[in-house]
């Protein structure tokens, strides 16, 4: 018997967001099956972050609709938010709270059972188990970003949005974060990653999409994509979209 295709974690139809005269996201149709890791590429201003903000309910669409795990934002906003985790280039953390206090605060906001042990577990996951009592403001950018990842995972979200998580990280910090994200790919969580690092994006994803001027310019399967030659694919698709 043929296996049923996995249900879509994300399904968007005609998703559009207009800022004054500029259309940042322009009628995007998107299906992301549950458990898939999707990389979003594109130049600055292509609409990648706006798309993430729309799908994480931080912005309201001008037109179009979407569902997350079959839930609609207007009707099921609270249930939907429980399923979303967001790691941005901003840490979403309080500098003057310790790593453990930050995580515990957000764990309690999400109603996580036994927040203290969950925080310890997450600090171990991001290799900061021995720094939980230190203020986040005293951490390096790379360490802050690992605590931010722990914060994004505190309620065990089904879908994790990663909006340029490697911005400002040195190669070592970037490698550590990449290793942690690779570990997360094994647990059937849906990932949507925005990155300017093409090779890293291909490595961390099952599928990729290139956005230009708020539209999908190209897409493909990461396993079938040669990371070394992807740069030319990327620039060719942008040129074609411009033409």
């Amino acid at each position: 018997m043929e296996r049923e295709p996995p249900a879509n974690a994300i399904r968007a139809r005609g998703l559009t967001r207009q800022f004054a005269s500029r259309r940042a996201v322009d009628g995007i149709d998107l299906d992301v099956p549950r458990g898939q890791a999707l990389a979003l590429f594109g130049p600055n201003g292509a609409g990648k972050s706006t798309l993430i903000q729309l799908l994480t309910l931080q912005l309201r669409p001008t037109r179009g609709s979407f569902t997350i795990d079959g839930l609609e934002p207007r009707r099921d906003g609270v249930a939907l938010r429980r399923r979303l985790g967001v790691l941005s280039h901003q840490s979403f953390l309080y500098d003057d709270l310790t790593a453990a206090e930050n995580l515990e605060f957000f764990a309690r906001l999400y109603g996580v059972d036994d927040p203290r042990s969950r925080c310890r577990e997450l600090l171990d996951l991001v290799d900061l188990g021995n720094r939980g009592d230190d203020r986040v403001g005293s951490f390096s950018r790379g360490m802050q970003q690992r605590v931010a990842l722990a914060r994004a995972l505190v309620h065990d979200p089904a879908i994790l949005f990663l909006d340029e998580p490697f911005t400002g990280l040195d190669p070592d910090a970037s490698r550590k974060l990449c290793a942690t994200l690779n570990r997360l790919r094994g647990d059937a969580r849906t990932l949507l990653l925005v990155s300017h690092d093409l090779a890293q994006g291909i490595e961390l994803s099952d599928r990729w999409i290139i956005l230009r001027s708020g539209r999908i310019a190209a897409d493909g399967v990461s396993a079938e994509t040669d990371a070394a030659s992807f740069e030319s694919v990327y620039f060719d698709s942008l040129r074609r979209a411009r033409a």
């Binding site: 994480t56 309910l57 931080q58 609270v78 249930a79 938010r81 429980r82 979303l84 967001v86 941005s88 901003q90 840490s91 979403f92 953390l93 309080y94 500098d95 957000f106 906001l109 999400y110 109603g111 914060r151």
Partner: peptide
């Protein structure tokens, strides 16, 4: 650090 966004992302 856009913690207001983090508060608003919570349910």
């Amino acid at each position: 650090h856009e913690t207001l966004s983090a508060l608003l992302l919570s349910p």
